[in-house]
Computed example of a mutant assay.
Amino acid sequence: MKVKMDEWYKKLIVLGLGCLISGCVNLDDAKVKYEKRSVNFNLPEGRYTNEMLVNDFGNGYFPKNRGFAEIKDSVCKITFRKGLKVHNTGIASQPIIIPGDSYTMEYKIKYDPDFEEGLHGKQFGFGIGKVYNGGEGEEARANGDGGSVRLGFDATKDSISNRLYVYYCKMKGKYGNNPGDQKFSFAKGVWNTIRLKVTMQSAINKADGRIEVWCNGVKKIDVDDLLFVRKESARKITKLAFSSFPGGGGIYPKHDNFLYIDDFRWSN
């Protein structure tokens, strides 16, 4: 009997490994995914770890050298490191959320008063379908099965200029576009509240997808004629872009630069 049980157990293990390899077990299904959540960063001071990220967002992680954030005075302080852009600086994570047709994100953000003029970079947003970013414009156009919506920023002497940075099936070029060519600015050194709402197109053949952005309660951007994807299976918002880093243009930082995030929330 013992021999038979051992053989049965071995077969069970092999079957389980086979399912995992073949894809009939989806590890993403085991992750905690939120369609509505509020993160206030009321945590002990020190490094904002992957464990804290998972506790706050349900899942996700900072890849190696993409998690330069800490908790300071109950807010999330992000460091743009001297001499670096994109890699080894800022933060980058893509927590999975429950797929939805429309999502709204809101957060408070403050750029340090000494945030360097000439810095350019990316801020928070959403991933669509099979998420495309990081110079994947050709893939977004050719495949039509994903994209992303984030804000891009440019630092001037006294303020931060903001615009859309979008990957979608009708985009041009390799890097994110600013459909609608709309911009807005806010001051450095003070807290500003950003609200970003993305609504997917109502059908595959309808260019009625919409992106709306408010700053301190005032609508600043509204684009309502977007065809994000060409495949029905991709017509959902699937991830958060909890990402903030310099790069894709702009200067290399001459010193460490800081920005602060608080009261980060999303809902569908």
Results as ranks from 00 to 15, higher is better:
G121E: 08
I128C: 06
M200R: 05
S267H: 01
I96M: 11
S243Y: 03
I237R: 08
S244Q: 04
K197Q: 12
G83T: 03
A30M: 13
M5A: 12
S93P: 01
R230P: 01
I211Y: 01
K85Y: 09
S202D: 06
N143S: 11
H255K: 15
E139S: 13
S161F: 02
T104Q: 02
L164V: 09
K31Q: 15
N59R: 05
L227S: 05
V198P: 06
L43P: 07
K197L: 02
N162W: 07
Y175H: 04
S159Q: 11
E212A: 13
R37P: 02
D158C: 02
Y48M: 04
D256R: 04
I221S: 04
V25L: 12
L17S: 05
L259R: 01
A30D: 13
K254M: 14
Q123A: 12
E136C: 03
D225F: 04
D224G: 14
T193E: 14
V25S: 04
R81D: 00
F153L: 05
I221H: 10
K174I: 10
G137Q: 10
I204G: 05
E212M: 12
Y168I: 06
I211N: 02
T238F: 01
N257C: 05
G248N: 09
K110G: 09
K157C: 08
C215S: 07
Q123N: 14
M5G: 15
G176P: 07
G60L: 06
L43H: 06
N26L: 01
S185Y: 09
V198L: 04
I128H: 04
Y61F: 14
P44T: 09
F245R: 03
L53A: 00
V14D: 15
G60F: 03
A241C: 07
D224V: 08
Y260W: 06
G90P: 04
S202G: 09
S202E: 05
L84P: 03
P113Y: 13
V223R: 00
G180I: 07
G129D: 06
I204S: 10
G58F: 00
K172S: 15
D262V: 10
V218F: 06
S102G: 13
C169N: 10
M105W: 00
L227I: 06
Y165E: 02
G250I: 00
D208L: 03
F258L: 01
R230Q: 14
A69I: 06
T89E: 10
N177S: 07
P246A: 08
G100P: 09
A92T: 11
D256L: 11
A69T: 04
K183A: 14
S233G: 10
F124A: 03
A187F: 08
G83H: 10
